[in-house]
Simulated assay, not measured.
Amino acid sequence: MPVRRANQTWLPSIFNDFLNNDWMVKANPTAPAINVIETEKEYKVEVAAPGMKKEDFQIHINEDNDLVISMEKKTESTEGDKGGKEESRYLRREFSYSKFQQTLILPDDVDKDKIDAKVNDGVLTIELPKRTPEEKEKATKVIEVK
């Protein structure tokens, strides 16, 4: 039978140090997962939002030109006898409240006037169309020096 030495605990420590990602910013564990996709014509942001409705979301562009996605859901779940003429009491009652906000820095080539959002099958999808090269030129204002 092998004898275990007290100083042989270094191996788990090395793996914990190597695999621990403290140097990476960790997201809130209750925050929904977010995908950001880029195509030639647009950026697409997908937010996992099971059970959420369009009324639960608020999306706007803030004063720093960042896209702010907020969602808030309040639900009440009850179990117990609520029927009949007799007085009822709760045997179990749960309140649920979730709130989330994510701010995304918008790339310069996003056409902010054409941003679209929809909720389908538990996923919030925000489409951020890119400006065409012609639209980019129009957006760049050249000031003539007199």
Results as ranks from 00 to 15, higher is better:
residue 1 M to I: 13
residue 3 V to P: 02
residue 4 R to F: 12
residue 4 R to K: 13
residue 5 R to D: 09
residue 5 R to P: 03
residue 7 N to F: 09
residue 7 N to H: 11
residue 7 N to I: 12
residue 10 W to E: 01
residue 10 W to K: 03
residue 12 P to H: 02
residue 13 S to G: 07
residue 13 S to C: 02
residue 13 S to P: 00
residue 14 I to F: 09
residue 15 F to Y: 11
residue 16 N to E: 04
residue 18 F to M: 07
residue 19 L to P: 02
residue 19 L to F: 14
residue 19 L to A: 04
residue 22 D to E: 03
residue 23 W to I: 01
residue 24 M to F: 03
residue 26 K to R: 07
residue 26 K to P: 02
residue 27 A to K: 09
residue 28 N to C: 07
residue 29 P to W: 07
residue 30 T to Q: 10
residue 31 A to Y: 03
residue 33 A to I: 13
residue 33 A to Y: 13
residue 34 I to T: 15
residue 36 V to R: 08
residue 38 E to P: 06
residue 44 K to C: 00
residue 46 E to C: 06
residue 46 E to G: 02
residue 48 A to W: 10
residue 49 A to F: 05
residue 50 P to V: 11
residue 53 K to C: 06
residue 53 K to P: 00
residue 55 E to C: 00
residue 55 E to L: 03
residue 57 F to I: 03
residue 60 H to S: 11
residue 60 H to Y: 14
residue 62 N to G: 03
residue 66 D to L: 01
residue 67 L to H: 05
residue 67 L to P: 06
residue 68 V to P: 06
residue 69 I to R: 03
residue 70 S to D: 12
residue 70 S to T: 12
residue 71 M to E: 06
residue 72 E to F: 10
residue 74 K to D: 15
residue 77 S to T: 15
residue 78 T to K: 14
residue 79 E to Y: 13
residue 80 G to I: 10
residue 81 D to F: 15
residue 84 G to M: 11
residue 86 E to H: 14
residue 87 E to Y: 14
residue 90 Y to C: 13
residue 91 L to S: 15
residue 93 R to H: 15
residue 94 E to V: 15
residue 96 S to F: 12
residue 97 Y to L: 06
residue 100 F to N: 12
residue 102 Q to V: 10
residue 103 T to S: 09
residue 106 L to K: 02
residue 106 L to A: 07
residue 107 P to R: 02
residue 107 P to I: 06
residue 109 D to W: 02
residue 110 V to H: 01
residue 110 V to N: 01
residue 110 V to R: 00
residue 111 D to W: 04
residue 116 D to E: 09
residue 117 A to Y: 06
residue 118 K to N: 03
residue 118 K to V: 05
residue 123 V to A: 04
residue 124 L to N: 01
residue 126 I to E: 03
residue 126 I to A: 03
residue 128 L to G: 08
residue 128 L to W: 07
residue 128 L to I: 05
residue 138 K to T: 12
residue 138 K to Y: 10
residue 139 A to E: 14
residue 140 T to V: 12
residue 144 E to D: 13
residue 144 E to R: 02
residue 146 K to H: 13
